[in-house]
């Protein structure tokens, strides 16, 4: 059975780009997309996907807040942070429990990037 993903990013362009990549290249079932942290929490509760990807800079509730809430309710949730943010906030998210981090811009036109992206997803799905 295909793995499932929920994609949350306040950029519709980015959710489209990620959605295409996950479905067309990775063979994932994209269960839903959201555009803020509150939607991320709701969508996780509703779908309980194998993976949720999350931007950090989002309206209403930011990615760090959503990550904290999701892991508070679902400690086994697999959250991948995808963001342009650099610095201590990232380390903070990883210490809270995000499984990994991918830095924007997303270079799906680059073989190296795609290979690393796939490897990261594989590692997250195999992690306990």
């Amino acid at each position: 059975m295909a793995s499932s993903v929920v994609i949350v990013d306040d950029s519709k362009f980015q959710t489209m780009q990620l959605g295409r990549f996950f479905s067309d290249v990775m063979g994932f079932q994209v269960l839903a997309t959201g555009e803020n942290g509150e939607e991320a929490v709701e969508l996780y509760r509703t779908h309980k996907p194998d993976l949720i990807t999350m931007d950090l800079t989002m309206p209403k509730l930011d990615g760090r807040g959503a990550l904290t809430r999701i892991l508070g309710e679902f400690p086994d949730a697999k959250v991948l942070v995808i963001s342009a943010v650099k610095g201590p906030l990232l380390l903070d998210c990883l210490s809270i429990g995000a499984k990994s981090y991918i830095e924007k811009p997303l270079r799906f036109d680059k073989e190296d990037f795609v290979r690393d992206f796939k490897a990261t997803i594989g590692e997250i799905l195999q992690s306990s």
Binding site: F13, A84, K86, K104
Partner: peptide
């Protein structure tokens, strides 16, 4: 939205 992504990248940096 794509342009916002560029702006977001620049602001982050």
């Amino acid at each position: 939205s794509a342009n916002a992504e560029i702006l977001n990248f620049v602001s982050s940096r």
